[in-house]
Amino acid sequence: GDALVRPASSGSWLRDEDAEFFEEDAERNELQAERNSRMRQMLHKRRQVKEKEAESAPEPQVQTEEFMTVGEVVPLGRGVVDENLPPWFCPRPHVENVVLRLHEELLDFTQFMKHTKEEVEARRQWVRVIGTVCRSLWPECEIRIFGSFFTGLSLPNGDVDVAVMNVPCRPATAMKILADTMLRAGDISWLEIIESAKVPVMKIRSQACGLRADIVFNQQDGLNTSKFIKQRVKEYPQLMPLLVFIKYYLLQRGLNDTFTGGMGSYLMCNVVLHFLQRHPSLSDPRLHSATSLGHLLFDFFKYYGREFRYDQAISVLDGGYTFRKEERGWGGKGKGEGEGGWAPVWMPTFQK
Rank of each mutant, 00 (worst) to 15 (best):
E140R: 07
L155N: 05
Q63M: 13
V127N: 08
K176W: 00
M113E: 02
V80P: 00
D299P: 15
S56W: 09
F89H: 15
P280M: 05
Q207P: 06
L107N: 08
Y310M: 08
E307I: 13
T132M: 11
Y266I: 01
V160R: 03
T322P: 03
K333C: 15
L239E: 11
P344F: 04
G329Y: 04
F67C: 12
K352S: 11
G262Q: 15
A122D: 11
R128K: 10
E83Y: 09
G332K: 15
L297Y: 14
T173H: 10
Q219D: 12
N270D: 11
K117H: 06
N166E: 14
K227Q: 11
R135E: 09
Q277K: 02
K247P: 07
K45F: 11
N224C: 12
E34T: 13
P285N: 06
F308E: 05
M39Q: 10
F275G: 04
V272D: 12
A19V: 00
L107C: 09
K234F: 13
E83G: 05
A163K: 01
L242Q: 07
T291L: 11
L273R: 04
Q252D: 08
G77H: 03
V127W: 02
P241E: 12
R144M: 09
M182Q: 03
P344Q: 05
R135N: 12
W190K: 14
P156Q: 04
T349E: 14
D108A: 09
V160S: 07
L178S: 00
N97Q: 07
C209G: 00
R232S: 09
E34C: 08
F323R: 00
P348S: 03
Q219R: 10
I215Q: 02
V70K: 00
Q111I: 14
V70I: 07
V160M: 05
M39E: 15
C134M: 13
E121A: 13
V272K: 13
V164M: 10
V167N: 02
T260L: 14
P87E: 02
F67I: 11
W190P: 04
H279R: 09
E96L: 08
G305I: 01
P344H: 03
K203T: 07
F300R: 12
A290C: 12
T173F: 08
A213P: 03
P91W: 00
L4I: 02
Y310E: 09
R253P: 04
S189G: 13
S148C: 01
F89C: 15
G332F: 14
P344L: 01
P280R: 10
T116W: 07
P7I: 00
G1S: 10
G254A: 01
A54S: 08
H274G: 02
R28K: 13
S9R: 06
W88T: 04
L282M: 05
S10A: 11
E119H: 07
G79L: 00
P171C: 07
K117F: 04
